[in-house]
């Protein structure tokens, strides 16, 4: 049996909101360590890897491994019915045909209970090897989101160029071009505002702006985003959860 209680529904609300536009059907794998999801978008360009460790829950138990096949849009409809500050408990039997979601407000005078039908989802499980990256950028997630949004107004592609201590986001469009350069920066009082660049080799990669604008839907989850890049290899965008992560692997574009 699975029983996982979040102190606040807001965490799962944000996670589902970040994923629902990229992937439609997901298997949620529940084990004693927590809940993990791996899902790839229909175009096979973006891979989502989610880990909500048991530590992200106030109470968590899962006696046997359970797979919950969930339709993200349906899950999102139910999740939106709960208040962000409600406690949220996920309950499923050992061989479940439904996932129960129970929202309780903190004063305990209102309990809302929903049942979501499960689906049998036949999905490839991809092996994600430990990848080597030539550049790692840690930066404020809100700043990264603004850059992705701004650059998308110009072009469907966003070029990321990293040299020494700066990252250049470059967009070349039909009616004009634009770029934003950010440099390493340490804010001792507000560490979440800092930019850290670790570089082994210079980077020049181009990504689809559409996918980046899906990834930045994770911005409410974490104040910082970590971007890991290597030439001719999928990039990794990571948002840390209180205990766990939401990761996106994005295949780059290449010149014909």
């Amino acid at each position: 049996m699975l029983e996982g209680k979040f102190d606040e529904a807001s965490l799962l609300k944000k996670v589902i909101d970040a994923m629902k536009d990229s992937v439609k059907l997901c298997n949620f794998n529940c084990t004693e360590n927590g809940i993990s999801v791996q899902a790839i978008d229909d175009s096979r360009v973006l891979l989502i890897s989610l880990l909500i460790e048991a530590g992200s829950f106030e109470d968590y138990r899962c006696d046997r491994n359970i797979v919950l096949g969930l339709e993200m849009e349906s899950l999102n409809k139910i999740i939106k019915n709960g208040n962000a500050s409600d406690m949220l408990t996920l309950v499923a039997e050992d061989s479940p045909d439904a996932l129960n979601l129970i929202f309780e407000d903190k004063r305990r005078d209102r309990i809302a209970e929903y049942s979501l039908k499960l689906m049998d989802i036949d999905q490839d499980f991809l092996k994600i090897e430990d990848m080597k990256f030539d550049a790692v950028v840690n930066m404020p997630s809100a700043e990264f989101a603004k850059i992705c949004r701004d650059m998308k107004t110009l072009s469907e592609s966003l070029q990321i160029i990293i040299t020494k201590d700066s990252v250049k986001f470059n967009s070349e469009g039909d009616f004009g071009s634009g770029s934003v350069v950010i440099k390493s920066f340490t804010d001792l009082e507000k560490t979440e505002e800092s930019v850290r660049i670790t570089l082994e080799k210079p980077i020049n990669l181009t990504f689809g702006a559409k996918y980046l604008n899906d990834i930045i839907k994770s911005t409410p989850l974490a104040s910082q985003v970590t971007i890991k890049l290597c030439d001719k290899q999928p990039a990794l965008f990571e948002y840390q959860l209180p205990s766990g992560y939401l990761r996106f692997y994005l295949a780059p574009k290449f010149e014909d």
Binding site: R44, A251, P252, K253
Partner: peptide, 14 residues
């Protein structure tokens, strides 16, 4: 022009 790459070449199916 540029072409969107796919992930299939990078990750193997388990």
């Amino acid at each position: 022009g540029s072409t969107q790459g796919r992930l299939d070449g990078f990750f193997s199916v388990m």
